[in-house]
């Protein structure tokens, strides 16, 4: 079966090795040499480009998830519960 790209086994190995490091790469936590090698590979490899971009987007979604307000009445309930605490602080 033919595929729509020109990888051979060595490249495949490089892809798999890179797959493990993608998050570190995105987070800027790889050392400079590794970072350069990864960038060079990705620029030449459409599979890894897709892999990188979909992972980045996954992170992007997580970062954009909005907070919800606390339920009505909860703040009041919480403060009442905390008022019942003994004054344990200054000892």
């Amino acid at each position: 079966m033919t595929t729509n790209h020109t990888h051979h086994d060595d490249d495949h190995k490089a892809c798999l090795a890179l797959f493990e490091k993608l998050s570190e790469y995105i987070d800027g936590e790889t050392d400079e040499v590794t970072c350069k090698a990864i960038r060079a590979h990705i620029e030449a490899c459409p599979c890894c480009t897709t892999c990188l971009e979909t992972l980045k987007r996954t992170i992007g979604f997580c970062e954009e998830v909005k907070e919800v307000p606390v339920p009505a009445g909860f703040s009041q309930k919480l403060r009442e519960a905390l008022k019942k605490m003994p004054p344990a602080l200054s000892s």
């Binding site: 790209h5 495949h12 459409p46 897709t50 971009e53 979909t54 980045k56 987007r57 992007g60």
Partner: peptide
């Protein structure tokens, strides 16, 4: 390798 999309899916390509 044939399982990997080489084309970026719309959900990752469109503005977030």
């Amino acid at each position: 390798l044939a399982d990997i999309d080489t084309e970026l899916p719309a959900w990752a390509a469109m503005p977030i």
